[in-house]
Design a protein around this nucleic acid. Sequence first.
DNA 1: TAATTATTGTGAGTAAGTTCACAATTGAAT
DNA 2: ATTCAATTGTGAACTTACTCACAATAATTA
Lengths: 209, 209
Amino acid sequence: MKDKRKIPKPVIKRMGLYYRCLNKLYEEGIEYVASKDIAARLGIKSSQVRKDLSYFGEFGKRGVGYNVDQLMKKLEDIIGVNKIWNVIVIGAGNIGTAIVNYPGLKKEKFNIIGVFDADRSKVGKKLGKLSVTHFSELEKFFNKNIVDLVVLAVPENAAQMVVEELEKYNIKGIINFAPIKLRTKIPVEDVDITLSFKSLVFRIEREIK
Amino acid sequence: MKDKRKIPKPVIKRMGLYYRCLNKLYEEGIEYVASKDIAARLGIKSSQVRKDLSYFGEFGKRGVGYNVDQLMKKLEDIIGVNKIWNVIVIGAGNIGTAIVNYPGLKKEKFNIIGVFDADRSKVGKKLGKLSVTHFSELEKFFNKNIVDLVVLAVPENAAQMVVEELEKYNIKGIINFAPIKLRTKIPVEDVDITLSFKSLVFRIEREIK
DNA sequence: TAATTATTGTGAGTAAGTTCACAATTGAAT
DNA sequence: ATTCAATTGTGAACTTACTCACAATAATTA
């Protein structure tokens, strides 16, 4: 591993993919795997797999491949899945509800500990084990709980205002479902599902690969 | 516009962003806009905006900017928002339900015309105006309806089997929420929300920008 | 009319990301 | 022990994407 190199952003997304792939291999009882096989399962090139992993260390054995169990554990450290992240969801509409109910997040150690909404008619509504709290209770909640991440699932016109409120607290990042660019110093990851639809449609219409 | 150039994939995603931005400008009553202003709203460089647009034509006026209304209409043609897309959702779990109820899609001309699930206990459940149909009715449905896109919101272990079923029909694309690589000739757009969480967490932990 | 200011469109230059290609290593077979 | 086949890790080449910088153009002002 040549150190100090900056890790390309796409590598980061692929690490999660590799981790999931290794999990499956482990469940299938496979002990050693070659970059070629991982690549085939993910539909990418084997050289990509090797280079990506090489940013973090030398995990393989030449002529043999990677020990599934061992590499899995390395990836756990790298992508930090072992740490439990406390998450609150702001906005209890369709997206907020789906996030709270989505079992995949819990499985990956994202622990949802609160749901907030500004709409009084939604307050008290049960979502799994949680019930919706009014947005005005946010400060009280932050005083009593450690919150790492906030899922922002509010309407577009409310998003920037909520972010400004969030800046008062000490959160580590925001997953933003509102289709606007948030102005903030807090790290933000934007998620936009309609863009995925549009992107697909564009490819279909233009036959661009 | 220099023609025949292949359009970079990231440009395609940004076109949707530009369109949405233009809509807002239009609503705000702004008649002309400079690439610099669009860029500022989206948090990117103005040269990027101009170059992206230049793949499709020359829409601006030097020294003045772009006519909002006019550019909006051009973008409509380019990204094909004017066409209505018929969509079915397979899988009526959390994600499937959220997709069906998500008003953003309807607004963008993605028209959900059916929801299917293999779980008999879900069949008949009302989701907005639609009710869940059993997966075995799929063929009958395809015989009576034109379906452009399929949203795949089934568990990971069912996804590949569903895709093989879908290959019998003449659909144009798949939005895949299952965390696996689908083996198919049909154009697929993968959506993975847990990857967004992981990517954010990775950035937070490593301070990589 | 000439100067001034604003802004586009794009070729050329950078930067980022991917793939190639091969020496180095490992284990198995002869 | 030697050969053979498999596979890694990585520098170098290549490809893709982004940014710069400036000529060209348009509107405004003097």
